[in-house]
């Protein structure tokens, strides 16, 4: 009975995190973008500095009519947002927050699990792009697929480099084995991983699949109301997951001063800093063209990640 209660409590905690953190990132994005662009951002909803803007947005989305285009493939169209969103919830379950089992569920091959499930989320965009019966959606879906195929490989290779360094695939195990000099040792890999993750989330500057000035909103063009909101939520949940993963793999997770008692604070602080960087990049970098996107992945990131793996292997052999 106690075990069941324990599992249920953990899952509820993960669900709460899943519902709260993406909204926090969204609100931060409103404010950070506004201040970087010399304006205020939403100021009225909720009174104090527009803190309730996203709640108001949610209410607005819930009130909108749920439209399925006449020529669309109804079932695939309606299923797509769930396929895009749910993988991120699953991933959050296995991300360790603090030492001594402060994690939803320990998975033996957690690293592979995370990467595998994150890849499934992209299927949602592809389904949406195809099922909308709209040429802009189809183009968006095509670009999403091309982008995933290009950036999945460097992401996997750099994650493999971390697994080699730690000698384990378990995420808590990787953080347990962390030493401060891992960060400089895996620096190139970390940058590649973060960049590839951004591209997989289709965040600017890698937002060619949803480039609004040429293909409206890519795969999500035909969506309205709650289903559209689910896609947006998936994007923010993706930011949380990517930043938390980068923290766990490359920045040492809960390690820091007083990590015994306040380890989870360190994880959250590092994740929040990375999320800030994600928003910062959106404001400061222009969108990459489709061919530049592909070129960056195949001619820069993949060679860099292979070099990182070679470096990891050499250092690992030397120190052991």
């Amino acid at each position: 009975m106690n075990d069941t209660l324990d599992v249920v409590l953990r899952l509820v905690a993960v669900l709460v995190v899943f519902l709260v953190l993406p909204l926090l990132v969204g609100q931060t994005e409103h404010k950070v973008m506004a201040h970087m662009q010399g304006r205020l951002g939403p100021m009225y909803a909720g009174g104090f500095h527009g803190w309730a803007q996203l709640v108001a947005d949610g209410v607005k989305f819930a009130q909108k009519e749920d439209i399925v285009p006449a020529d669309a493939d109804r079932r695939v169209f309606q299923l797509a947002p769930a396929v895009a969103l749910l993988p991120y919830l699953l991933v959050l379950i296995v991300i360790p927050v603090g030492p001594d089992g402060f994690v939803g569920q320990t998975v033996d091959a957690g690293l592979i699990f995370v990467l595998a499930v994150m890849g499934v989320g992209v299927l949602g965009s592809l389904m949406a792009g195809w099922a909308s019966a709209n040429k802009f959606s189809l183009l968006g879906g095509l670009r999403t697929a091309a982008q995933l195929m290009a950036y999945e490989l460097p992401m996997l290779l750099t994650a493999a480099s971390v697994a080699m360094a730690a000698g384990t695939l378990s995420l808590p195990g990787i953080v347990d084995g962390y030493h401060w000099w891992w960060t400089p040792w895996q620096l190139v890999g970390g940058v590649v991983f973060f960049t590839a993750g951004l591209a997989e989330l289709q965040r600017p500057p890698f937002d060619m699949p949803v480039a609004d000035s040429e293909i409206i909103f890519g795969a999500y063009t035909e969506y309205t109301g709650l289903r559209f909101a689910l896609f947006l939520l998936a994007e923010y949940a993706g930011i949380v997951v990517l930043c938390a993963l980068t923290t766990v793999l490359f920045l040492g997770g809960w390690h820091g001063p007083w990590s015994g008692s306040a380890g989870w604070v360190w994880t959250l602080v590092k994740t929040a800093l990375l999320a800030f960087v994600v928003i910062w990049l959106r404001v400061s970098y222009p969108r990459l063209r489709e061919d530049q996107l592909q070129k960056l992945a195949w001619t820069v990131l993949i060679p860099l990640s292979l070099a990182q793996i070679a470096l990891t292997g050499v250092v690992k052999v030397v120190i052991s």
Binding site: D108, A109, F113, A116, G119, V120, L123, L142, A145, L148
Partner: peptide, 28 residues
């Protein structure tokens, strides 16, 4: 467990995406 996740990673995450990419290129 390991084989299961690799199955998802390779087949669902990559092979099917490649298939869908090909189908979309033909404007399925």
């Amino acid at each position: 467990e390991f084989i299961a996740w690799v199955q998802v990673l390779i087949y669902v995450g990559s092979v099917v995406v490649l298939l869908l990419f090909g189908l979309m290129l033909t404007k399925a």
